[in-house]
């Protein structure tokens, strides 16, 4: 995959521009590439949306054509599913709880592992990767035993803990380089000024590394929003299932409700898009804040 071909018009940028990097440059190459990227992701999404607007009987017969009578049946069906809003609320609670808990634990861990160089760090990093590798299916049975013994089955707390345990290695590994990128001189300056370590961490490290924190938080939220295996296994009552489990309901051994699956997929993703719009702004602001001296 070619990235950008060196161009003769490299000098076209005006050094006087305050932020030339964000301005339009090299559009002859980057522009078309952006459109290619757009197509690669837009076409499948278009397909998802189109399928969600079909009658079940039309899905197979009009696979690559746009000729069909659109219907909102799938959406009406999905929206009238009893428990859709409970499921959405469950998803929200689980994802928010997991994100908060994961960040609470992983941010300090990422910082600690970024600032200490010792054998323990090496071992810690290695172990995190190993944990990241353990198949999720292998965790279900042992966790079921723990939660059963602690009365956490059928509780949001159980699923949140399981999701958090799943995502801590991921979040810690991801956060570490962002803390690492903060110049140590900044911290030393603060500590010479008498600031305590937690205070330095809170008022200097966190604001500067906020790009990383926001991105990691978004990713953790996304992952826990879509998590399905733990939710289905640790909730014993269907009334507690989150959206991801409702989605699985569209696929059964006896048939797949394609429009329903796609419609639910679209509905499930909308809150994610809202969250993304929010963090997207955060990231842009992070740029200027990141230049703190």
């Amino acid at each position: 995959m070619s990235i950008v071909i060196p161009r003769a018009d490299a000098t076209a940028s005006a050094p006087s521009s305050p932020q030339p990097r964000r301005k339009k440059r090299f559009e002859p190459v980057a522009g078309p590439l952006r459109v290619v990227l757009l197509l690669i992701y837009a076409v499948p999404i278009l397909f998802i949306v189109l399928t969600s607007l079909k009658q079940p009987g039309d899905v197979i017969s009009s696979q690559s054509s746009f000729l069909f009578t659109p219907t909102l049946d799938a959406y009406t069906n999905v929206l009238s599913t009893s428990g859709l809003f409970v499921a959405m609320q469950q998803s929200l609670v689980i994802a928010a709880g997991t994100t908060a808990l994961t960040l609470l634990v992983a941010i300090p861990a990422g910082y600690g592992l970024a600032r200490v160089d010792s054998r323990i760090t090496t071992i810690g990093l290695g172990l995190l990767i190993v944990l990241q590798m353990v198949p999720q299916t292998a965790n279900v049975i042992p966790l079921y035993q723990i939660f059963g013994a602690w009365g956490l089955l059928d509780q949001n707390a159980g699923v949140i803990i399981a999701d958090t345990a799943l995502l801590i290695p991921f979040a810690t590994l991801l956060l570490r380089p962002f803390f690492r990128a903060v110049p140590e001189a900044l911290e030393e300056a603060a500590s010479i000024d008498g600031a305590s370590i937690p205070r330095t961490f809170w008022s200097i490290m966190l604001p500067i590394a906020r790009n990383g924190v926001a991105t990691t938080g978004t990713l953790v939220f996304l992952l826990s929003w879509g998590e399905f295996l733990y939710a289905v296994n640790f909730f014993l009552s269907p009334g507690n299932y989150p959206l991801s489990a409702l989605l699985a309901q569209q696929v059964s051994a006896f048939g797949i409700n394609w429009p329903g699956l796609m419609a639910l997929g679209v509905i499930t993703s909308i809150p994610i898009l809202i969250l993304f719009t929010f963090t997207y702004r955060l990231l842009r602001e992070g740029l200027t804040l990141g230049a703190v001296k």
């Binding site: 689980i94 709880g97 808990l101 602690w150 009365g151 059928d154 509780q155 949001n156 014993l236 009334g239």
Partner: peptide
Amino acid sequence: RTRSLPLIGGAIAVSAALALTGCTPSSSGG
């Protein structure tokens, strides 16, 4: 079977989670 967690770390984690999330809405069919 007990609801109290023997380990402090677990207790912190669980209480944080509970505080954040409120309770599970329905338990019918459990």
